[in-house]
């Protein structure tokens, strides 16, 4: 990602598929150079971990017999990653679930 000062990092997440066939989407805008809160600083750190994780992951298709499973797409300033639900783990999952707002807060 390009970390130009004042340039926000825009992360777009979509979760499609599922037996209900409903796509959920969300966007998170972060300011890596000038975070406005401690919370944003943690999200920036998590986003960087998530991106590193996604880049390191091998391009692996979902197991071919899976039906009705969720499919995730994550877009970091234009850098796109598609991940099957069972393979989205760790920081990338925490970030993605936060962005689309699931699981719902209790």
């Amino acid at each position: 990602m390009n970390e130009v000062p004042d340039e926000p990092l825009v992360i777009r997440v979509a979760r499609s598929g599922g037996v209900a066939g409903m796509t959920r989407t969300g966007t998170l805008e972060l300011h890596p150079q000038s975070p406005t809160s401690g919370q944003e600083t943690s999200w920036v750190a998590l986003a960087q971990e998530a991106l590193a994780e996604l880049r390191a992951a091998k391009e692996s298709a979902a197991p071919s017999q899976l039906r009705d499973s969720f499919m995730w797409s994550l877009d970091f300033d234009g850098e796109k990653h598609s991940v099957a639900d069972a393979l989205l783990t760790g920081p990338a999952r925490t970030l993605a679930e936060h962005i689309i707002g699931t699981p719902l807060p209790r």
């Binding site: 599922g18 209900a20 197991p63 017999q65 899976l66 039906r67 969720f70 699931t102 699981p103 719902l104």
Partner: peptide, 22 residues
């Protein structure tokens, strides 16, 4: 899963989530 909003077939069996309750 937790509040998992889906049911699927994994190639060997069916898998059911509890839903989010909302």
């Amino acid at each position: 899963g937790q509040y998992y909003d889906n049911a699927f077939w994994d190639g060997t069996q069916m898998v059911m989530g509890d839903g989010d309750g909302e």
